[in-house]
Amino acid sequence: MKTKHILQNLAMVFTMALFFQCKNNFKEVQQIGVLQNEPVGIADHINLKYTDSGKITANLISPKMLDYSNMDFGYFEFPEGIRLILFDKDQNQTVVTSDYAVNYIEKNLIDLRGNVVLATYNKDTLFTEQLYYNEKLEWIFTDKPFRMRSTTQNTLGLHLDSDIDFKDIQILGMNDSDFQIEN
């Protein structure tokens, strides 16, 4: 009887020692089965709608999305391009398309590449090979050659920095422009 009691106590001490040696490895457990540099998720035919106070602020459409949010610097990759529709407070639409895109989650930055076209509701259109969009600031910029077409002008340049509506715009390194000046 005494031997049985000693064995039960030893088993209990051993079990308690195991519990105290456990540590929180949740991040490591999440990585089990995920190869280095592999996405944690793949989505096909996505149509994401972002809302604020019951109004749609953006609609992201893409044939494929790869989720790399498990990385130290998490991001979403859109290898087959995107169509991004942005809505202002009056629900006017600005449409951005590209052949490829990466959304850097922590930086609120989207890197758009390949045949990038941004068309505003008031008929301004920007064409370039790469464009960055800061979601939080609603700001765009590029250091690639671009063409901007509007109802009153056609501009070719090398660097553009602007708000999404082209109301506060800086163009550096203009190549060629046609302006129509009133009066």
Rank of each mutant, 00 (worst) to 15 (best):
T3Q: 07
T3D: 09
T3N: 07
K4V: 08
L7Q: 12
Q8N: 08
Q8M: 11
Q8E: 07
A11D: 09
M12C: 05
M12A: 14
F14I: 12
A17N: 05
A17F: 14
A17S: 12
F19A: 14
C22A: 14
C22W: 08
K23L: 09
N24I: 11
Q31D: 13
G33H: 08
G33W: 04
P39E: 04
V40N: 04
V40G: 01
I42E: 12
A43S: 14
A43I: 06
D44C: 05
H45G: 03
I46L: 14
I46M: 10
N47I: 00
L48V: 13
K49H: 07
S53Y: 08
I56Y: 00
I56W: 00
T57N: 08
A58L: 04
N59V: 09
I61Y: 08
I61E: 06
S62L: 05
S62E: 02
K64R: 15
K64D: 01
D67K: 10
D67N: 15
S69R: 14
N70V: 04
D72G: 12
G74R: 04
Y75E: 11
E80N: 13
E80C: 00
G81F: 02
I82G: 02
F87H: 11
D88H: 10
D90W: 01
D90N: 13
D90F: 09
Q91P: 01
Q91A: 14
Q93I: 12
T94N: 07
T94D: 06
T94F: 08
V95S: 01
V95R: 09
A101Q: 05
A101K: 09
V102A: 03
V102K: 14
V102N: 11
Y104R: 14
Y104M: 09
I105V: 15
I105R: 08
K107F: 02
N108F: 15
I110L: 10
D111S: 13
L112N: 12
L112K: 02
L112I: 05
L112C: 11
G114W: 03
V117W: 01
V117T: 12
L118E: 10
A119P: 01
T120W: 03
T120I: 08
Y121V: 01
Y121A: 07
Y121S: 13
Y121M: 01
N122T: 09
N122W: 00
K123Y: 05
K123C: 00
D124A: 11
T125C: 00
F127E: 03
F127T: 07
T128C: 12
E129P: 01
E129H: 02
Q130R: 15
Q130T: 03
Y132H: 10
Y133F: 15
N134L: 10
E135V: 12
L137F: 06
K144M: 10
K144P: 00
R147E: 11
R147S: 09
M148K: 13
S150M: 04
T152M: 07
Q153E: 14
T155P: 00
H159Y: 04
L160A: 03
L160N: 06
S162I: 03
S162V: 05
F166S: 05
F166H: 02
F166V: 06
K167G: 06
D168Q: 13
I169H: 01
I169G: 01
L172M: 09
G173Y: 02
M174S: 07
N175D: 12
D176L: 03
S177M: 10
S177Q: 03
F179A: 02
F179C: 02
Q180F: 07
I181T: 06
I181K: 03
E182D: 11
N183K: 15
N183I: 06
